[in-house]
Structures are given as C-alpha cells and as structure tokens.
Amino acid sequence: MSDMIDLVESPEPDTNLRDEIRQISDRVRRRRQLRSKFMITLCALALSVTAVPLFLLLYQLFDRGLPVILHTGFFTQLPQTPNLITPNATGGVSNAIIGTLVLSLYASIMAIPIGVLVGVYLAESVSKLAASLRVISQTMAGAPSILMGLFAFSFVVRDLNIGFSALAGSFALAVLMLPVIVISTEIAVRGVPHTLREAGLALGAKPHKVSMKIVLPAALTGIVTGIILAISRAIGETAPVLLVIGGGYINSWKPLDPVSALPLSIYENAKSEWPSLRTEVWGIALVLVVFVFVLSLSARIWASRKQQAR
C-alpha cells in the first residue's frame, strides 16, 4: 500500500480539543434531549389540534341536524316562511336540493368537455399558448369564488340580460370548476407512461387516435377523480351563487328560472330571525356535508383502488 501516492498530511489528533468537545456535549446532552421530546410532543399536539374542529363540527352537525332531516317532508316539501301564527313552520328544502342538483348538472355540462380538452391540450402541446394557459389555470384555481359571482352577474345576468337564474349560477360554478378539471386532467394525461404512447405510434396509429384511444382511457381514473372533486367543491360554494341565482322558492329544472341551493339556504336561514329556521339550518348543513364528503371520499377511494390495481 505504501507505493500509493500519499496525498494526506494527517495532523496529529488533538486530544485537548476532543476532550473539550466531549465535555461540552456531555453537559448539554440531557437538555437537548428534553428539548427534542418537548418540541416533538408539541408537533403531535398540533396534529391533534387540527383534528379537533372537524370532530366538533361533525358532532354538532349530527347532534343538531339529524332530528331535522328525520322530520317529515324535509326532503320533499317546499320551504314555508314562519309567521306569528305558525312560528315553527319551516317546510322542507326540496327546492334547495333540486337547485343544487340543477346547478351542478348544468355547470358540469359546461365545464367538463372544455376542461378535459384543455387539460389534454396542455399535456400534449408545447406551444406558448399552452404555457400561458397553464399559469392561468393555476391562478384561476385559487381565485376567490366571489369573483366568479361578480363575473356571472355582469356577463350573464346583466349583459346577456338573462336575469337571476340557474343558468347564471351554473355559469359561475362552471368557471370555478374549469381550472380544477384542466389541472387534474393535465396531471392525469402526463401520468400515462410514454411507452404506451410510443407503442401506439409504433403500430402506425395516428397521433390523435393514440391520444383518444390509448392515452385518454389510461388517464380516465385521474380525470374522473378531478371532475368529482371539482363538482364537490362547486356544490359547497355559496359566494358565487349568492349573487346570481335569485333564491327561487319553487322546484324547477328550467335553466332560466331562479333557483335555490343548499349553501344559499344555509346562509339565509342562519341569519334568519326565526328560531325554527335556525334549527332547520343544521339539517341542511348535514345534508350538504354528507353530499360533499361522499363525493370526495368516493373520488379518493376510487382513485387509490385503481392505482393499486395497476
């Protein structure tokens, strides 16, 4: 070994230095360990604190909401305004449930086709338009939802002169859903392995056939998950629909009619003077939360099961 080039001039180990370092570290070791335990405990505490609001909220929802939704006619009747003679009359929320379904249906019809196509475009194109649309979609996805309401009000209600209607509300929700669908579609399409595309191209298929017949089916799970999450987000939004749907008290599926929606009923009942309405509001909230949770949980479970199957 001695014939190797000796690059190293090793200094003599300095035993004084070593002792001094060991002494210091021995002295502070216990303090460091206590500090570590303390801080780690604080972190664990923070995690449990995060869980507290969810549990409190869910408890309140079920505790106060369950009796309400078991009440006859809650799902089937139209709302009644209480008055001095019948202060406990509340009726049901059929108009809000139908309104929420109508709004999300029309919003999906508007947002899904465009959103998925744009997502595919972003994933497959390298143009400047694609790059700027990517930034735009990410910025829009975080935009305050009240702004969608302002947009729908100015454009649909006033400029197009359509008035307060389900159409205006679903337009606002569609604008809200669009970027979410675009982003999740792009991620899903990008996640499709290149080998799959290349195999298709190698077999002589035209690029657009590969895109439609191979890439889209492979990315379907991710795309559908994104769509469900977008819908579940839209269903719970109050601010945009507050400004434009008009709060109709009838059951209507027509796009030009004013409608109500679950979040809107919650907002309005909560502020009501009537105790009976403020009791009923917990039932509506329970329905809405169950709605949203079922949607987002099923999206998540479906996505993870598909992932495992792969």
Partner: peptide
C-alpha cells in the same frame, strides 16, 4: 382526514 377538513364547505364553517 385533512382533505375532509378542506372539503367542508365554507358556509358550514360560517354557520358553526
């Protein structure tokens, strides 16, 4: 769990 916390509509937090 954290996702569910995020999924609760803001009007429900407001109500609470």
């Amino acid at each position: 769990f954290v996702e569910l916390l995020a999924a609760v509509p803001s009007v429900v937090y407001g109500l609470w």
